Simulated assay, not measured.
Amino acid sequence: MKAVFRVDSSNFIGFGHLIRCLTLAKELRERGVECSFVCRDHPGNIAAKVIDSGFSVFLLERANEASALKGSDLEYDKWLGCSWQIDSDETNEILRVIQPDWLIVDHYSIDVKWEEALTKNYKKLMVIDDLANRDHSCDLVLDQNLFLDMKRRYDGRVNSQCLQLLGPKYALLQPEYRQLREKAKVRNSSIKNLIISFGGSDQSNLTELAFLAAHSFGREFSSINVVMPSASPFYNQVKKLIKPIKKATLYSDLPSLAPLMLEADIGIGAGGATNWERFCLGLPSLVITLAKNQKLVNNDLSKLRLIELIGDVETIKIEHVRAAIRAVLSRRDLAGWSKRCMRECSGDGAILVAGAILGITKK
């Protein structure tokens, strides 16, 4: 059995899409599926990480930005770096040779037009989506987010035969989260250890903002672990800031945040997939929304009392972060908060999704 993933990563797109596909690919490989990846050579991509994991990567040539779609209503349409027709043609050439049983797509620029242009060269299609803002012609759709209207989210977007895997139960977390979950403690009112992580390349330097806010509380925190990719344009600046502070440690390019999350009592970071990682390990978190697609889900998570939403990257100020930290330090309901998070995500998502793929294949 063969599966091909069409997914991209870059400084602008971030790395989360590729990382979750890589997690699923590893789980499928354990079950005997031969997986390969089709990625475009965008600036700052991490296709090398896929190769290091033992998978083949077909790297599409970096597109000329002048050929990208212009004047589109959705900025996501430009993430391909070219028109959908060019991308589908180039991907089709690869699929024609491989003839995969499954094509697995994780890309905000791809919709039913692209999918139907390739139908002759794959048997089944899985779409990993977070937006529910476009139509798909697929056999399986995965949306690992949590919304108040989750069950109706894809009404009219997919056909009635499509299997819908919805919610953090199916979140594609690295296996370390599932393995460490057994050691995760329910947090209490004793908040001493903090982790700060904004993933990707942190183009807005929220890492420094959050660190300065936390450090201003003096001895309230025994340790502050800061995670920032070395590729971030602000990495050296943050490194210089943190170096003389004994209780603070800067980490970069970690294979997983799971061990640091396990040690932490509270987290400060972005929304998106990191929410589910924190949930799995029962880590209460203060969240700043980084992208448009995170706004609705973060608002709903806040209403469900699963995160404390500080604000939006476009308007956030250090006093907002300080106020959120001050409020959480005085809370006495951390145990309940921690338990609510753990109920939403067990870390078994990759196992469940791989099982669903193989189940459909056998029908």
Results as ranks from 00 to 15, higher is better:
E90V: 00
Q161R: 11
I13E: 02
S160N: 13
V226N: 09
S10E: 07
L329V: 11
R322F: 04
V7G: 12
L180H: 09
N64Y: 03
P175N: 03
R331F: 00
L194K: 06
L283W: 04
K239M: 10
D143V: 10
D52P: 05
I266P: 04
I316P: 07
Q237R: 14
V127A: 11
Q164C: 10
V313C: 02
V313A: 10
T289V: 15
L80P: 03
N11Q: 04
E263C: 02
K124L: 12
F198G: 07
K120N: 15
L140P: 03
H136G: 13
A63G: 06
D130G: 06
F221T: 14
D139T: 15
I19K: 12
A184K: 03
N92K: 08
S197A: 15
G269T: 02
S137Q: 02
H320G: 06
I196A: 15
F5I: 11
S201A: 15
K362T: 09
S256A: 07
Y251K: 12
A25Q: 03
P175Q: 09
S53M: 05
L28E: 03
K26Y: 00
N205G: 07
A68P: 00
K185M: 11
F198K: 07
D333W: 02
F37T: 03
L165I: 10
R332N: 15
G311H: 11
A66L: 09
V127E: 13
I325C: 06
E263D: 03
E220A: 15
R31D: 08
I98Y: 05
V105T: 15
S160W: 03
A354N: 01
A327C: 05
S88E: 12
K70T: 11
G271H: 01
E75H: 15
V57N: 04
K239Q: 14
L131A: 08
F12C: 01
I191Y: 03
F221K: 10
I13M: 04
N225A: 04
E65L: 07
